[in-house]
């Protein structure tokens, strides 16, 4: 007696629920990844403004700044406003928590009454204490001497702010809006003057220096301290210059004249 074998109506092992689940997951993955892929594409296409990946930062260069205080006017803060505009620093009207990458400091000799005004920002030390103390290595110094914060690995411990002798760093105390693509910032991390690294890598100079020469007194000079032919090197060789807290032995890249 032959028995009729009953064939299943579907392929063996087929599970419609599973197939539906997988296709939903694939769609979800696509939706999740697509914007990232697109952003990557945009980033690649706009990378022309930044330093080309092939030309690595070289230690043959040391970027620095010379600020001549005889040309720096007491009431002028063009460098400060240029920095804020360039890097999208917007205050919230809270003086003690708002970020300041560069500020004008007024100093007076209490005995003689003589006073001066000078811009102070990250001094881009050759031996930066902020880099030494940072637990994750988020604070780092590029080969060309620019001291930066990696916004992806900063955990916001603020030890660098404790260590900086120049009070150059700010903690981002609240949410940010309208950030500049070339100066990424993030709530809960620490930041400071980048020496306008995006401009420098594209062959330009920092916004503060540009503003100072355009509308200010032309007190700020930017250049390569290692190139003997650069204007900054020649001036540093010719005139006496000072570093703030030179006694600490940190060798700041920002020098002052007539301080």
């Amino acid at each position: 007696m032959s028995r009729k074998v009953k064939h299943p109506t579907t392929t063996p092992g087929f599970d419609p629920v599973r197939r539906k689940f997988l296709s939903t997951m694939a769609a979800a993955a696509g939706v999740t990844l697509a914007p990232g892929v697109m952003l990557y594409g945009i980033a690649r296409s706009t990378s022309a403004v930044a330093r080309a990946p092939a030309s690595a930062v070289s230690s043959d260069v040391r970027w620095g700044m010379l600020i001549d205080l005889n040309r720096c006017d007491n009431g002028c803060d063009d460098c400060v406003s240029a920095c804020s505009k360039e890097n999208g620093l917007q205050g919230h009207g809270r003086q003690s928590t708002d970020a300041q990458w560069i500020r004008k400091v007024d100093i007076t000799n209490p005995e003689t009454g003589a006073s001066q005004s000078l811009p102070v920002m990250c001094q881009h030390c050759a031996e930066p204490p902020c880099v030494d103390v940072c637990p994750t290595g988020a604070s780092f110094k590029r080969a060309d001497g620019i001291v930066l914060v990696d916004k992806h690995t900063c955990i916001g411990c603020r030890y660098c702010m404790m260590a900086c002798p120049y009070k150059a760093r700010s903690f981002i105390h609240e949410s940010l809006e309208d950030q500049k693509p070339h100066a990424p910032r993030g709530k809960g991390t620490v930041e400071s003057c980048t020496l306008c690294v995006h401009r420098v890598d594209a062959g330009g100079q920092p916004a503060c220096v540009e503003a100072c020469s355009d509308t200010g007194g032309g007190a700020m000079l930017f250049g390569d301290l290692k190139d003997p032919n650069s204007e900054i090197s020649q001036r540093v060789a010719k005139y006496a210059t000072q570093q703030i807290r030179a006694d600490l032995g940190l060798d700041p890249g920002v020098r002052y004249r007539n301080l």
């Binding site: 003086q95 003690s96 500020r103 400091v105 007024d106 100093i107 007076t108 209490p110 120049y166 009070k167």
Partner: peptide, 15 residues
């Protein structure tokens, strides 16, 4: 912070 020893210091950043 004693950035300028012997000087009186002021700024918008509470120096």
């Amino acid at each position: 912070l004693n950035m300028f020893p012997g000087m009186e210091v002021s700024s918008s950043f509470n120096d």
